[in-house]
Design a protein around this nucleic acid. Structure first.
Lengths: 189, 189
DNA sequence: ATAATTTTTTATCATTTGTCAATGTTTATG
DNA sequence: CATAAACATTGACAAATGATAAAAAATTAT
């Protein structure tokens, strides 16, 4: 079950066999069922997850009690609630499996441990932070300058998995609109 | 002119006097005039700026030719166009001074150099990435779940400098709405 | 100080999106 | 397989926001 993560690491950083071993031994496999909650908004986020298969979303609930999806991770990506994880304080977000699948989890302690002993792990962390920041920025830009239809089209171009594999409810949520609006959107040209 | 950055570094990381010297010697002071363009969307971003005084915004121009402001940095913060800077490819964004002020600039070469010789610089970079990511995420959340009025109130609470020091045009731009909408917004309760 | 320019406000109207309700469809479960 | 539950679509209407135009106010330049 570690092959996939190993391959990902090999493609991402230049790690020795020894480094790889140390890293992989920190990750534990976990099967996830669709709709399963991996993190509650009352808990502290103790893990970073690498997705072998399936998908996981991060969402929160606003004052009116509506869900809002911040991020969706598919296979070969990491997901966590970074602020809660870094500071080890209560999360304001949920993590939920949006499909059946398999993840590899690394704990906060092991993550910190790897940071202190493996320079290459620090480099990987920097790279992932840069990717996460850049991805986030694009998404933010799409909200600043685009209307709902444009955001949908943009999503279709840049991340079609969201539309292809997940329910309209979650897609609408991710786009920041209601299901009804999404439904109408898809109708018109 | 380096005192401010020095103080910032002292508060943020545990650097020796020697580390501090190496870092500070990489930064060059530059006066900036309101409306001055620090980076054009046809250039590659060669610098990270630390703001001593004044403010700088990052914005882009969408298909319809409208400006959209992604981020505004005030004193004691860094600003750059990260993707262009990291990959040293053409930027899609502008950087523009929104007030008269003073910045400290570090070049891409010096930045890389510090990363390779100073572990503490890597730690600072990680910290700044974490902050940038988290800030970005909050801003993204505000767009997913809030309407314009709520975003305005939220901005007033979390980052009043934007409203207090910059023109409505830029505030509206930052909120992703038109000047006219902002004007109406401020009127009603 | 005056003129020119830019920014802000106000008004009207069009468009987009949200809300609510009803109905049809799919999916999960006993 | 049958039933319930969740999800998707559609319509009618309301609210929010954008577009355009014009006037008022503030800022900048001469």
């Amino acid at each position: 079950m570690t092959e996939q993560l190993e391959q990902f690491l090999t493609l991402t950083i230049r790690a020795t066999q020894d480094d790889l071993g140390k890293i992989l031994s920190c990750f534990k496999v976990r099967q996830i069922a669709k709709n399963e909650i991996l993190l509650n908004d009352t808990e502290t986020c103790r893990h970073i997850y690498f997705i072998n298969s399936g998908s996981v979303r991060a969402y929160f609930i606003d004052e009116e009690g509506n869900e809002a999806t911040r991020y969706i991770a598919f296979e070969n990506n990491f997901i966590t609630t970074l602020n809660s994880f870094i500071t080890q304080t209560t999360s304001t977000e949920f993590l939920q499996a949006t499909e059946n699948g398999e993840v590899m989890a690394i704990s906060y302690q092991d993550f910190r441990q790897l940071l202190s002993i493996l320079p290459i792990w620090k480099d990987l962390y920097i790279k992932q932070l840069e990717i996460a920041y850049t991805t986030n920025t694009w998404r933010l830009e799409s909200f600043i300058k685009m209307d709902a239809k444009q955001r949908y089209d943009y999503l279709f171009e840049t991340n079609p998995k969201v539309i292809q594999r997940l329910s309209n409810k979650i897609v609408a949520n991710y786009l920041g609109i209601t299901q009804e609006s999404l439904s109408r959107l898809k109708g018109k040209k």
